[in-house]
Every structure is written in C-alpha cells, then in structure tokens.
C-alpha cells in the first residue's frame, strides 16, 4: 500500500469469519497531512467489511475531531488499502478457514 503517512493495521487477529473487524489507525508522518492531527494516539475502531465504507469511517473521524476536513481523503485511502488487503487475504485463505 502507498505510504500515506497514516498507518492502519489489524487490532485483532482476522479469522475470516466475522464481517466486522477491529482496526487501529495512527499517524506515522504528520508532515503528509494537510491539517494538524489532534494527537498522535492510535485510534481503534470496528469496521463492517460488508456494510460500511472507508469514506464513512474517515468522515466520522473528521466529525469526531481526530483529523482536519482536508485530510479525509488520505484517511479514507489508508483505511481502504488495509481493508482491500484483508479482503484479498480472506479470498485466498477463506476456504481453508471455513
């Protein structure tokens, strides 16, 4: 995934069975953001792979004051890259897990 300066990783082990997954997001390189992030804590949240979109979560993070409005695209892209990797892996190892 492209280095957006915002890191998103799994916050729990993914067994490929649940549609919701816990993710953790934090800022690795504040210089790549347009606005100044509130604090550089790691933000943990659950994401529904089937019903939700990265853009929705990114906007909720902006609403909650974690990021500046101008950074919604970077935050959404970082989440999207990680979610795509999770879904790609689930398709590869999914059958073995069932």
């Amino acid at each position: 995934a492209e280095d957006t300066g915002v890191r998103v990783e799994l916050a729990e082990e993914d067994h490929g069975r649940k549609s919701t997954i816990a993710l953790r997001l934090w800022v690795e390189d504040p210089k790549k953001l347009k606005g100044k992030p509130k604090d550089n804590g790691a933000i943990e949240f659950t994401f529904d792979l089937e019903k939700e979109t990265p853009d929705e979560v990114a906007q909720e993070m902006i609403d909650s004051g974690f990021f500046h409005e101008n950074d919604v695209k970077i935050v959404a892209k970082s989440i999207r890259d990680r979610v795509a990797l999770i879904q790609w892996r689930r398709e590869r190892i999914g059958p073995a897990l069932q």
Binding site: D3, R7, W26, E28, D29, D39, N40, G41, A42, I43, E44, F45, T46, E56, V57, E60, M61, D63, S64, G65, F66
Partner: peptide, 27 residues
C-alpha cells in the same frame, strides 16, 4: 497508559491509546 473513548453520533466507538514508541519511528 491512558485510554480515551469517543463515540460518534452514528454510534461508532473510537478508542484512542498511545502509539507504542517503536511504531512511531517505523516508516
């Protein structure tokens, strides 16, 4: 190790915890 919690109006819970020092410098 302080944890803060923000619940968005749409109901999603965001839990903020300090980023482990090692992860901050990792690029």
């Amino acid at each position: 190790n302080s944890l803060t919690q923000v619940v968005h109006s749409a109901g999603r819970r965001f839990i903020v915890s300090p980023v482990p020092e090692s992860r901050l410098r990792e690029s």
